[in-house]
Amino acid sequence: MSDSNTILKIDDLHTHYDTPQGTVRAVAGTSLEVHRGETVGIVGESGCGKSVMLRSILRIVPHPGRIIGGSIEFTRRDGETVDMVKLDPNSRKIRSIRGDEIAMIFQEPMSSLSPVHTIGDQIIEAIVLHKSVSNTEARSIAIEMLGKVAMPRPEQIVDQYPHEISGGMRQRAMIAMALSCEPRLLIADEPTTALDVTTQAQILDLMRRLQSEFNMAIMFVTHDLGVVAQMTEHVVVMYMGQVVEAGSVKELFTAPRHPYTHGLLHSIPRLGQRKLGRRLVSIKGSVPDPFARPSGCPFHTRCQYNDGDRCVREEPALREVMPGHSARCHYAETLGLQGVDKPAEAINA
């Protein structure tokens, strides 16, 4: 049911890793949609499959991972819809999409930038690969991009190496590189997790401005619910390779439908928690061993609402609980989970 605004539609994606100890279902039936110009937050703990899912989109899943089913439909600039799963990961076609129409920024800018090339060389390479411009023109585009990401002294930084600049500046350089070809979709894999909170505020502010300037869609992966609440319109919560809940950010935060989302919302200390005098509610146990996936609902081992019967036997399907809000829980309609407080003024607004 994708309308003309959908630029990415993932349907029942399965990416598995075959290892000597057995098969890991890193992505086990993920479906989601991204619309033009929208920011989608993807939330989950380490091992929930979010990074593998993102790498599946660009077909850069490292060996021995492979996509074994599902489709990833991406609508290109010229209106053509391609299924990324069907493309050869080394083909000319996918390389014309990667870095040009879909760009990615990574968590650790130090390890994803080349230490032996200058910042400028790395941005120029991306530009000349996708645009028919000369090296001199590409260089001036690179300097312009560095200026756009609010890099101080862009004319100097362009000739410096990654180790010569700070973490926040490296992340700016990586964003400049990703945006140099004006992508339609930006995949941001924990772009601020490695940064300090004041630097994070700078980068988030920057990303917000650039998004409206370039009118691109962003898939924003993070485990920080504060960042999700402030940056995204639509949220997808993942657990054990599956989407367990998806909906608008307001719905999901104020009226969560899955016990896992509910647990995440109440297990982080927020500023002001002390005044409330509430003890943190923790989710018991830890993420199960990927080789020993629980039967039935994968979350039942940690769920306080586990009924001991249907949850253990039958795997719930992701279904729409309300228009635009879906959850993968047998009891999504009846649990009546508490979200964050809605301020009084917002109800009238």
């Binding site: 994070q200 402030q230 950010v249």
Partner: peptide
């Protein structure tokens, strides 16, 4: 600079 975990 701490992002508030409440979309409202």
């Amino acid at each position: 600079a701490v992002p508030e975990a409440n979309p409202y």
